[in-house]
Amino acid sequence: MKKILSAAVLFASLTTAPAFAAPVAYKIDPGHLSVAFIVNHLGFANLIGRFNTAAGELSFDKAAVETSSLSVSIDAASIDTNHAKRDEHLRSPDFFNTKEFPKLTFKSTKIEKTGEATGTLTGDLTMLGVTKPVVLNVTFNKDGVSAASKLETAGFSARGTIKRSDFGMKYGVPNIGDEIQILIEAEAVKS
């Protein structure tokens, strides 16, 4: 009987243990989120732009990063290349077609650890109504209580490249580069 009880206690402790290591919910801090991109312009130079409005949620497990997940939603009309008329053009059907497709979304599908603080984040990017898998190289920068906000915070950097024509954004290719470099810097605050 004693043996059975011990086994039951052990089983219970084993089955409840993952609850303590479960991913923790974070919200992306919009004030410390930068979603930027680099695109080649006619071969002369690379233009840097950004999206000023985005939101996202992170489910993060430092002990088992593979079980973490991320979803981000970007307001396409918030595009900013430091030129109002060009931004208007970028919002038009030539590029982001923001009236028809107001959001760009990313939802992670797989996270793999590649080093002590690095990994690859695979996910589905939906843009212009087309969903394609993309892979981002992620660096985990730091977690802990932020000296500024006093809140539990985790910080990441991500880099990747997509082909805009894969999403049906073919206007101006090849004069305006098809390959787009993506740069993301984000801080997420524990919910």
């Binding site: 059907p93 077609n97 028809e100 497709f101 212009l128 109504g129 087309v130 024509s165 049906g168 073919k170 206007y171």
Partner: peptide, 15 residues
């Protein structure tokens, strides 16, 4: 030539 042949069914107004 300018926009490319859009997918069918097209997701956007241009398609």
């Amino acid at each position: 030539l300018v926009v490319g042949v859009p997918a069918f069914p097209p997701p956007s107004s241009m398609g």
